[in-house]
Simulated scan of single mutants.
Amino acid sequence: MGLLREPSFDTPCRIAVEQSEAHFHAHVELEGDVAIQPGDKVRVHGAPIIVGFGESILIQRMATVQPAGPLLRAWTKLTAMGELKELYEVSFTTSRW
């Protein structure tokens, strides 16, 4: 067990993207019982997703989850206290590293 990062693992995920007058969002849902916590990183693999105005798309991809260790998790919570700040990091990549 590392203090900053736990071992990473791959998991399938579903990505829902919509761009319309009413909604502009991208949601990533990991398959299974994966609990994402403050400080964790999720990297979604594959080509960039392009959605035109008025369109929505649902895609299956693979993602790499890198859980934060106890020290990084505590630091993330501490630095985000009292602020509107994202506690999670999600990135999209076209390669495996």
Rank of each mutant, 00 (worst) to 15 (best):
E6A: 13
V51L: 04
G82R: 08
R14S: 11
E31G: 05
F92D: 04
Q66C: 03
G39N: 03
I15R: 00
P48A: 02
G54E: 03
A68I: 12
P12W: 00
I49Q: 12
E21N: 11
M62N: 13
I57G: 02
E83F: 11
R96F: 14
A68W: 11
C13R: 05
K77S: 06
F53S: 10
P12M: 00
E86D: 07
A22F: 05
W75R: 14
E21R: 14
A22V: 06
W97P: 09
S20G: 10
G39I: 01
V90E: 04
Y88C: 03
R61S: 11
E55I: 00
V28Q: 08
S8P: 04
P12N: 03
E21K: 12
V17P: 09
A47C: 00
E89S: 03
L87H: 09
F53V: 02
G2I: 08
W97V: 13
Q37H: 06
R5P: 00
A74P: 02
I59S: 03
F92I: 02
S95T: 13
L72V: 03
T76C: 08
R96H: 15
R14P: 01
T79D: 12
M81S: 04
V17R: 14
L3P: 00
K85S: 13
L4I: 12
D40Y: 12
F9D: 07
P38C: 06
P12C: 01
V51R: 07
